[in-house]
C-alpha cells in the first residue's frame, strides 16, 4: 500500500484515506466573461497529462479533510513531495 505524506497532519498515511482531485495550480480566471470560448474550454477541460512529473491536488478526505498539492511521477506512481494548498509550485 502506498503511504502519502499529508502536509497538514505531517505524517504518512495509507493511500485509501486520500482522494485524487485533478491537476493542481489551475487558477479560475478572474473575469470569465472576458474569455473567448476557446480560452474557457481550455480552463475547464484541457489538462497536462504528462508522462512523469505531475502536479496534482489530493484531499486527505478520510483524515484531516484538507486539500493539498503533490508532485507525483505518473510512470512510477512515486510521490516526490507534498505541500500545503496555497504554497508555490514545487
Amino acid at each position: 500500500m502506498i503511504l502519502i505524506h499529508c502536509p497538514y497532519c505531517d505524517e504518512k498515511r495509507a493511500e485509501l484515506e486520500f482522494a485524487y482531485a485533478g491537476q493542481a495550480h489551475i487558477a479560475r480566471p478572474a473575469d470569465p466573461s472576458a474569455l473567448s470560448d476557446e480560452e474557457w474550454e481550455h480552463y475547464l477541460f484541457i489538462r497536462a497529462n504528462p508522462r512523469g512529473r505531475h502536479h496534482e491536488r489530493w484531499r486527505h478526505i478520510h483524515g484531516c479533510g484538507r486539500f493539498f498539492n503533490a508532485v507525483r511521477d505518473t510512470v512510477t506512481d512515486k510521490f516526490e513531495t507534498t505541500y500545503k494548498a496555497g504554497e508555490p509550485r514545487k
Binding site: M1, C9, R13, A14, L16, E17, H62, G63, C64, G65
Partner: peptide, 17 residues
C-alpha cells in the same frame, strides 16, 4: 485499519478508514 497502533499513543484521535 492500516494505522500503526504500536505508535498510536493514549489520548490520540484521528479520522480514518
Amino acid at each position: 485499519c492500516p494505522l500503526d497502533f504500536d505508535r498510536f499513543n493514549v489520548g490520540r484521535a484521528t479520522r480514518t478508514i
